[in-house]
Design a binder for these strands. Structure first.
Lengths: 245, 245
DNA sequence: AAGTGGTCTAGACCACCCG
DNA sequence: GGGTGGTCTAGACCACTTT
């Protein structure tokens, strides 16, 4: 029930409209017009429009020029958003954990250095963990951070969410990540870690996470068991417009 | 080189800034201030801000309150966007095609009816195809559309991009899609279609595509060979704000 | 013709960063 | 303190849909 408070007027309008919809509006019902909402709140129309822009982007409402703004016909409203393993598992109703966490500092090397935009000699923190959900091993992860971003990271720190530690202890906010998802079969070593037969099918996910400035902050390679994990996302179709060729 | 023309002023500002960056600005270089750009174009500051909003969302620039707007440090700017198989393959420099296309109309049934929000008795067009890239089979796809959206769809129509046909012939614009990506091993029948050994690892992708109003327009189940396909995407971290619990 | 969303203007004040 | 981005106002005109 708790909404996260935000000081802006447009956010309060957004929440009001979400409540309107939850209060019983059906898909394709028309919302109050922008001018009605502006009058009701005594805000400018532009402020109301910003709230509706957000809801439209999230797929909650759609707008038809000349006709009005309507509730979307969406049963599921999943996300194309980056979540940490911990957040992901909690969202699925499971309890996240870690096993066999190991942390060491070593030179980046070619592959990791290239991905993080560092010299191969620059030190990185290498974190290797087996991530669990309700105690069941789900994925084996090797994650690398520039050491100067997270000096003194310990094995106790990485028992839970790395993203939370980065934010709370080091002030690093991850904003976006590029991922490449491939399929593979598990090598015997990984299979044993994950407690499945050797050569079981699995996801192989390579991720480079970046902060708001686009600077690479984390490079990770993970192997997820295919029998216990699937990847869900919502993707948007590109609007007509593009950068140069 | 060709930019897609758009009538809005903010779009012209956006393109101008993209050109500025391409003309030699380096990551973390500062852009002209919003007020400078507004003066230069003789537009209002809000119009300039809309252009910068777009560029910020796309990860091209970042803004620091009190300091300025800067070029992002991003080597790769991939997308979290929905592309058709044909577009996807062309983007990878390959030529898309289809084999064994088969089209039939039949009742939706429970699973497809549920996904498309139709009665199980309502007719759907079932399209089954093997998609190829440079003549190599990449995926086997079963796709279902409500028949009333695409009456008279023929096997010749589905040799190429279904999304393009939907737009050009039926006026249906797909805006977003929910996808569930899992791993599997290929059954012998699929393996033969895709010309790989039986029990090779593969992606199993289930997709429900929707138009701007959120109405389900397409339900598809695809199997992609794992040795020739990987899934790349960029995901954004959720801003702090949320709907009700 | 009336009403809707789409775009834009010319200001204003605030919070924040930097020299 | 001066300049930056963040938010907001009270209008205006346009393109479009609906009656």
């Amino acid at each position: 029930m708790a909404e996260i408070a935000r000081a802006t007027k447009s956010e309060s309008v957004r929440q009001h409209i979400v409540h309107l919809i939850d209060a019983g509006l059906q898909p394709h019902d028309r919302l109050p017009t922008e001018r009605e909402l502006a009058d009701e709140f005594a805000y400018s129309r532009l402020t109301v429009r910003r709230a509706l822009d957000q809801l439209e982007h999230d797929g909650i409402v759609y707008r038809v020029q000349g006709a009005g703004t309507f509730v979307s016909d969406t049963r599921i409203a999943k996300s194309f958003e980056l979540t940490s393993f911990s957040e992901d598992m909690r969202a699925r109703g499971m309890t996240p954990g870690s096993q066999s966490a190991h942390v060491e500092v070593r030179p980046a090397g070619m592959k990791v250095g290239y991905a993080l935009g560092l010299s191969p000699m620059e030190p990185v923190v290498h974190i290797s963990r087996v991530r669990t959900a309700d105690g069941i091993p789900i994925c084996s992860e090797d994650c690398y951070l520039p050491e100067r971003l997270a000096p003194g990271l310990s094995e106790e720190d990485v028992a839970g969410s790395l993203y939370e530690i980065l934010t709370s202890q080091y002030g690093v906010e991850i904003e976006r990540a590029d991922q490449v998802i491939a399929v593979t079969v598990l090598e015997p070593a990984h299979a044993e870690q994950l407690q499945v037969p050797a050569f079981s099918p699995a996801f192989h996910i390579v991720r480079t996470s970046r902060d708001g400035t686009g600077r690479a902050v984390e490079y990770a390679e993970s192997v997820y068991r295919g029998d216990r994990y699937s990847y869900e996302l919502t993707v948007l179709r590109r609007r007509e417009a593009s950068g140069p060729a």
